[in-house]
Design a protein around this nucleic acid. Structure first.
Length: 266
DNA sequence: TTCCAGGCGTATC
DNA sequence: GATACGCATGGA
């Protein structure tokens, strides 16, 4: 991780990062593209304006403490993605996917924030998910706590226009607020039992659980299978993903997901 | 108008 | 365990 302080900003040097690849690909739903290679968004209640490309980025109005505590983990800056891509490149489809979007990284989001966002993602499209989450944060002036959300009703959440998902988010909020669901504990469990625990929440099935485990709890063996990834498996991995990728197949999934959605039509 | 979107709960076999 | 269907909302 290489960075320097410049006035009120942090200058980050990172070759394996492209903002469009990480902030606008359905991994996190709280970022707005505000210009060419520039985004504004949040991790929970911490705002950030970030811009840059080709290995050099500016994190505006960010002090070193916030950078090290919030953004370095968020952008997973301690992980060597060149080394990961080298391993993936042994596989034909993954090699093409990695070549297609070299700037992909796993965003390590807050587990509660990820849980809420991915519950809203079910049978929904990315544009609408972002709209719902934006209305949610705007309504409270911050990202709501489990307790705040637990105090709502399906009716009072009508302003979100989140459809049938409102009752699911309410169930998640109530379970987390009451302690019945302990996200910190779940994050420390092995993958399979952590997944089973998350799936006790209404509206959390295998796919949403895997997204929360991957981006909210950094379980890189979580492998979200949505409609797009099912197309990937059908087209490239009829016999399953190679076993050697198991431990980091969640990150492989990020490359494949973006590739199948955005590759040029044949 | 119909189809689809980073699925899930429920009913039924 | 597998399969079928309904589900809120809004853009294409």
């Amino acid at each position: 991780m290489k960075y320097e302080i410049s006035g009120n900003d942090i200058i980050l040097y990172e070759d394996d990062l492209a903002l469009d690849d990480v902030l606008d690909t359905g991994q996190a739903f709280r970022w707005d593209r505000i210009g060419e290679n520039a985004y504004f968004g949040y991790s929970l209640d911490c705002p950030l304006e970030i811009s840059g490309s080709d290995g050099k980025f500016v994190l505006k109005n960010t002090d070193e403490e916030v950078f090290l505590k919030v953004w370095a983990p968020y952008f997973d800056l301690e992980t060597d993605y060149s080394a990961l891509r080298k391993i993936y490149s042994k596989d034909a489809a993954l090699s093409a996917a990695c070549e297609f979007s070299r700037g992909i990284r796993l965003l390590r989001q807050d587990s509660w924030e990820a849980l809420v966002c991915f519950i809203f993602s079910s049978n929904n499209n990315i544009t609408r998910i972002k709209g719902i989450v934006a209305r949610l944060a705007e309504h409270y002036g911050k990202f709501p706590s489990p307790e705040q959300l637990a105090a709502e009703t399906e009716e009072s959440l009508g302003f979100l226009r989140s459809g049938f998902r409102a009752k699911y988010v309410l169930d998640a909020a109530k379970k987390v607020a009451s302690g019945e669901t302990d996200l910190k504990k779940i994050a420390e469990m092995p993958y399979e039992s952590a997944k089973a625990e998350l799936m006790k929440i209404k509206g959390v099935g295998p796919k949403v659980a895997d997204c929360v485990l991957l981006s909210g709890m950094y379980k890189t063996e979580a492998f979200p299978l949505d409609v797009w990834m099912k197309r990937v498996m059908e087209e490239y991995y009829k016999d399953g993903l190679p076993e050697e990728f198991y431990g980091t197949r969640g990150i492989a999934q990020l490359y494949l997901f973006n590739y199948i959605r955005k590759r040029p039509k044949q």
